[in-house]
Amino acid sequence: MSTSSRKKVLLKVIILGDSGVGKTSLMNQYVNKKFSNQYKATIGADFLTKDVMVDDRLVTMQIWDTAGQERFQSLGVAFYRGADSCVLVYDCTVSKTFENMNAWRDEFLIQAGPPDPDNFPFVVIGNKIDMEPQRTVPAKRAMAWCQSKGNIPYFETSAKEAVNVEQAFQVIAKTALGKEDEEPFIPGEVDFGDEPKEAKSSGCC
């Protein structure tokens, strides 16, 4: 349990962005290949996991949903903890959601406190490109922003029509994997998935 030297193949990925940009839909499309047109402010979404191959390595991606706590900027620090990658999502038909990307990025860097904030692996997703006629955020503008923040990989997706979703998450896995082993990882001794230790140390009763 305490082999801190072994490469961690479980990656924690968190998805951030304003309410309604399609965070949960992206996750669902990627993991479950499903899309529901009916918007419900996230209920019942916790985290999804998916195994992917990255450069011949099997990696388990654990993708965490905000569970709606982003709505009033009320995500707790525990949510951000130990993230290997952060996906910033906006809705390309709503400019405000793009403008808030700065705030989400800063919030992440402050809360997660990665040792090297300038090189932390972000990925940016402009979602809902199936609604192209209503687009208000030009791709150029988004790409310029990504470039200014240290060349963040940028994708335009449609969670509804499964456009580019697979590709985006493949890059997310890859960037997250590149980040690992930067800091020493001290695992906890107990999580409740563990089988309790044999009673050998309890000799007294």
Partner: peptide, 18 residues
């Protein structure tokens, strides 16, 4: 699928999982 995946993590613990 979600529950299966979750319960795998739940049942095994992260390091075990890997």
């Amino acid at each position: 699928q979600r529950v299966d995946e979750t319960s795998r993590l739940l049942g095994l613990g992260l390091e075990e999982q890997s």
